[in-house]
Structures are given as structure tokens and as C-alpha cells.
């Protein structure tokens, strides 16, 4: 058995048998995903719902277009009362050729929407009735805008955060506990290179990150959450690995300064939590104030997040990896170098 392989297996066993770590690696981020995913699910604007009395070609056209939703009433007064009570913004009353709209004065935006839509359909019907070809043509097309449904930005955000947390805590706590328990000394006294020890620990973290990715994406894709992956989702794999290395390096830096596991845990939290909030883990960073967006550029998590969003849900290709990958690699090199300078074998 090579040292690298046995050490990897040993560390994997240690990880799997530690219930607290398992909780914070998998269940804790999943809790955020589930809670935010469910709470924010219906935050998108619904179609306007109005009362309807009667039927006719205009109503059929409206129904086919799907722009409005109808609540049917037999009695005109009942429909109007719904508007008066403030339950519905408008009532559409069709009497043969006559289309009558009663709308609530209070909600002008919604009323104007309803009036505009209905008017549009009435005009179109009138034009069709004249048999004249239209003089002006109106063309419209859907544009995919940057605004995402909550689950679409929550999944990449919480995944990046979960990977960051487990890599930072994993490396910082392992380092501090091994130093305190003199496991480091024992390794130093064995004819084994630090590279194989370090790389076996990183391999475990990387495997954990990929598993986190599979589980989080799998759960977010359940119909109840409704995540839709873009075609290039697999580009998230290199990002997960680069992110693991970057945050592992950060954990080594934290672990170099912390003397006890408690101190390491507190320090890791101080580093990771603000970074998570400012990097768009729980809300899209483009909704934050401009200065905050600039500040967040310094965090590797922000770039990992951006990359994840681009490849997982925005359908961008490999070119979207360039900046995040460069930032993560650069961060790993700089922080890893500093961590190796301040690394201590002994307490």
C-alpha cells in the first residue's frame, strides 16, 4: 500500500465516521437550500386574475393567450362586488358584442395592465372584423434576462458556500488537531513526503466537494424545487475542484495561526461567513449596492459563485470559466505560499 493511498483511505474513514462533520458538510447547507428554495419559490410575479362574466370570441382569444387568469361568475353584481371588496383588480363583463371592464381604482398599475390587455384584444378583433390588412405590424419576442428564479441562483450559491465551508474547516481543523495531538510530529518522523500527506487530504476534500455537488444539484432538481440545469453543467466539476484547493489553502492559513480546534473553528467562521453573505450565496450579488459588488470582487467565493451560476444555470460555455478559474488558481498559489511560510510543525 502506498502511503498516499492508505492516508487517503484513513482520512476518508475519519471523515465518514465523524457525524458532526457530515452534518455541517451535507445537511447544514441543504437546510438552507430547502428552506430558501421553498420560501422563495413563489416569489416570481403571477399572472393577473380577474373576474369574468359571459363568454365570446374575445374571451377565447384572451384565454388562448394565457395573459390573464379568469374567475368565472354568473352574476354581474357578484363579479363587481369582488372588485369592490378588493379581492380582484378587475371584472370583465361580456354582453354579446359589448365588453365591459370594471376596475379597482386603488391598484392603478394592475388595472392599467388589465385594461391594456383587454383593449388590445378588442382592437384586434375589430380589425379582423373589418377584413382590412393591418397597416402596421407588431412583432414581439421573449428575451432571456439576467433575473433568475430563486432556486436557479440558490443552488450554485449554496453549493459554492458548502464546498468553501467544508474545505476551510476540513483543512484548518485537521491541521490544528494533528499538531496538537502530535500526529504531525509522527508524520515528520516517518520517511514520507509532506506532498503525499497534503495531497491525500486534498483528494478527500475534492471527493467530498463532488459529492456535495451531486447531492445538492440532485435535490434542487426535484420537482418541488424545480432547478433547471443548463447544457454545460459538467463545467462545474473543474470549478468545484479548483474551489476546493483554494479554500483548502485558506484553511491551512487559518490552521497555521490557530492553537486550538475551537480557535480554528471560530477563525474559519469569521473568514467564511462574511464572505458567503457578500459573495451572493443567498441572494444574487447583482442586486446588492454597487460598492458592495466591487468589494465582493476580492473574495474567491464570489468568483466561484459567478462561475457556478454561468455554467450551471445561465448556459454559458467554457469561456465563462476563464476568470473564476484564474482567480481561484491565483488565490490558491498566493494563499498556499503564505500558508507554507507560516506553517508550524509543533505547538
Amino acid at each position: 500500500m502506498t502511503a498516499f493511498k492508505t492516508l487517503s483511505v484513513a482520512m476518508l474513514k475519519g471523515f465518514v465516521r465523524d457525524k458532526v462533520t457530515l452534518f455541517f458538510t451535507f445537511l447544514f447547507p441543504l437546510m438552507f437550500l430547502v428552506i430558501f428554495g421553498l420560501v422563495l419559490r413563489d416569489a416570481g410575479t403571477d399572472r393577473t386574475r380577474i373576474a369574468l362574466v359571459g363568454d365570446g370570441p374575445i374571451v377565447s382569444a384572451l384565454r388562448d393567450s394565457g395573459t390573464l387568469e379568469f374567475e368565472s361568475y354568473d352574476d354581474e353584481n357578484a363579479a363587481v362586488r369582488k372588485v369592490e371588496d378588493g379581492d380582484l383588480p378587475a371584472a370583465l363583463i361580456v354582453r354579446g358584442q359589448e365588453v365591459d371592464v370594471r376596475y379597482a381604482q386603488s391598484d392603478q398599475v394592475e388595472s392599467a395592465t388589465v385594461l391594456g390587455i383587454v383593449n388590445g384584444f378588442v382592437d384586434k378583433a375589430n380589425l379582423a372584423a373589418t377584413g382590412q390588412p393591418p397597416r402596421f405590424t407588431f412583432v414581439s419576442q421573449k428575451v432571456e434576462d439576467a433575473t433568475l428564479e430563486p432556486i436557479q441562483y440558490l443552488t450554485p450559491g449554496i453549493l459554492s458556500w458548502g464546498v468553501a465551508v467544508s474545505a476551510v474547516f476540513g483543512s484548518a481543523l485537521t491541521l490544528v488537531s494533528w499538531r496538537r495531538k502530535q500526529v504531525l510530529r509522527r508524520i515528520r518522523l516517518a520517511p514520507v513526503s509532506t506532498t503525499s500527506v497534503l495531497s491525500s487530504r486534498i483528494i478527500v476534500s475534492a471527493g467530498v466537494a463532488l459529492l456535495q455537488g451531486a447531492i445538492f444539484i440532485g435535490i434542487a432538481s426535484l420537482p418541488v424545487f424545480g432547478l433547471r440545469l443548463s447544457g454545460h453543467w459538467w463545467l462545474a466539476i473543474p470549478l468545484l475542484l479548483l474551489g476546493t484547493i483554494a479554500f483548502f489553502a485558506l484553511g491551512m492559513l487559518v490552521g497555521a495561526f490557530a492553537k486550538t480546534e475551537e480557535a480554528a473553528s471560530a477563525a474559519a467562521n469569521i473568514v467564511v461567513l462574511p464572505m458567503a453573505f457578500l459573495s451572493g450565496t443567498f441572494f444574487p450579488v447583482d442586486r446588492a449596492p454597487a460598492w458592495l459588488q466591487v468589494v465582493s470582487e476580492i473574495f474567491p467565493l464570489r468568483h466561484m459563485n459567478d462561475g457556478m451560476l454561468d455554467v450551471l444555470v445561465r448556459g454559458k460555455g467554457i469561456e465563462a470559466l476563464a476568470v473564476p478559474a484564474a482567480v481561484l488558481v491565483g488565490f490558491s498559489l498566493v494563499v498556499g505560499f503564505v500558508a507554507s511560510r507560516v506553517f508550524k510543525w509543533e505547538e
Binding site: T6, G14, D18, K181, Q182, A190, V192
Partner: peptide, 24 residues
């Protein structure tokens, strides 16, 4: 070394095998 210089959560046999692997 100290009585606590072990890898986390491994059994007695696994500890020995892991330390042994450092020496091939």
C-alpha cells in the same frame, strides 16, 4: 509519542496500518 497521537476515528488496527503505510 503522546498517548493521543492518532488519526481521528480509526480503529486500533487501522491506526497501525496507516502508520505502517508511512513506512511502506
Amino acid at each position: 509519542l503522546q498517548a493521543s497521537s492518532f488519526f481521528e476515528k480509526l480503529t486500533a488496527k487501522e491506526q497501525l496500518q496507516t502508520f505502517g503505510s508511512l513506512y511502506g
